[in-house]
Design a protein around this nucleic acid. Structure first.
Lengths: 203, 203
DNA sequence: TCTATTTGACTGACCAGTCAGTCATGTTCT
DNA sequence: AGAACATGACTGACTGGTCAGTCAAATAGA
């Protein structure tokens, strides 16, 4: 039994199929090496159809990266610091699963894609910086300041460099993409050791 | 006054010119987008000449990355731990300048290139892993063990994860490539804060 | 029927890699 | 020494193939 669909719905579905196919293809091959005909084939659509939805290859690329990243933008402010015993427990409860998800999921692929192609797409780098990095930095910084208040941080100066807290995640994403098959790493243990380094012992 | 050159010398010079030009071109545009004709033009040489020295575009790419990375291999074992007061001072004396050099020099460009193209060139990823990462990891680990003996490390468990020590460098390289122009970072201060986090205070 | 949507063959530009020919350099002979 | 010859490094026009983007024709919905 086949559900009836309006034309508008079909069009939307096609667009989503194209976006999903394009994400796979770009992640797999990078921008230059990805063929629009291949994206179309994966989406079960003719090449021309891709051009009904996106002006050109660059527009398609930027659209899928923005789409994939937008949910992250939403989630960044979600963690509340109110009435929480320790900042470390917050990190363990939220940052650790988030990191493991990013490293192992499609989001990690997108991050790698951005790192690889960012220089050729400065607008994308700007978008990422403005919409994700800056809020994320501010959020981490807020948490770190709270941790300093609580006397949880071994090095209070860390509050000025939230990027140092995030660096192991970036490294893990890159490692997962390039070396995990040669030399597997236990990312969870790595991240826990990182927390042990940041926070006072015996909390 | 023009020095006389033998044929062999001229050939060598041309080869070097091609390698240098190719490095610039690949760093600037990535593997796919780089045109051999452009490499040739930059080297002041005809396109065919490039193919007298390198079998194809991939061979040229691998050659320049290996060439650029080999000096790093040499230098890794050079730091001695004998009769040094503190491991931290060793890091400050050697690792900090090394890191600043990598972040700001051509070596950083090559590292970014490797991160971007590594998935498409597994042999290169393997080479980098075997010749650089593994020895570097072992070396850092040796230093960390010594630091544990000295009671210098705030978190002795860190000795199991030398990558955590290197993560800020990787992050800096990526930041330098993508965001430094939007949002400059003082890499030296960042790295010093990193050291403050790793080592006991008041050393 | 008539219109909006989709299709895929087609075009034009582009580029990796080739190869027949050139010529500077090095070698041998007188 | 100097002329005649041999070498092979270098050149760049050319080939074969690829692919982004177009558009006239086919198709499916209203």
């Amino acid at each position: 039994m086949r559900a009836k669909r309006t034309r508008a719905q079909q069009t939307d579905e096609r667009r989503l199929a194209i976006v999903a196919a394009a994400l796979d293809a770009f992640v797999e091959s990078g921008f230059e090496a990805t063929k629009i005909s291949d994206v179309a084939a994966r989406a079960g659509v003719a090449k021309g159809t891709v051009y009904l939805h996106f002006a050109d290859k660059e527009a398609l690329f930027e659209a899928i990266v923005r789409d994939a990243l937008s949910p992250v933008v939403q989630g960044i402010g979600a963690i509340s610091t109110d009435g929480v015993a320790s900042v470390r427990s917050l990190f363990e409860a939220f940052a650790l699963p988030l990191m493991l998800d990013i490293v192992e999921s499609r989001r990690g692929d997108v991050l790698r894609l951005l790192i690889s192609e960012g220089r050729r797409f400065p607008r994308l780098a700007e978008f990422y910086h403005a919409e994700i990095l800056t809020p994320a930095k501010a959020h981490i910084q807020r948490l770190l300041c709270k941790a300093v208040e609580n006397g949880e941080l071994r090095n209070p100066g860390l509050a000025e460099y939230p990027l140092l807290v995030a660096a192991p995640m970036l490294m893990s994403v890159i490692w997962a993409g390039l070396f995990q098959r040669l030399d597997p790493i236990d990312f969870e243990a790595l991240f826990r050791t990182h927390l042990d380094t940041l926070f006072m012992p015996g909390a």
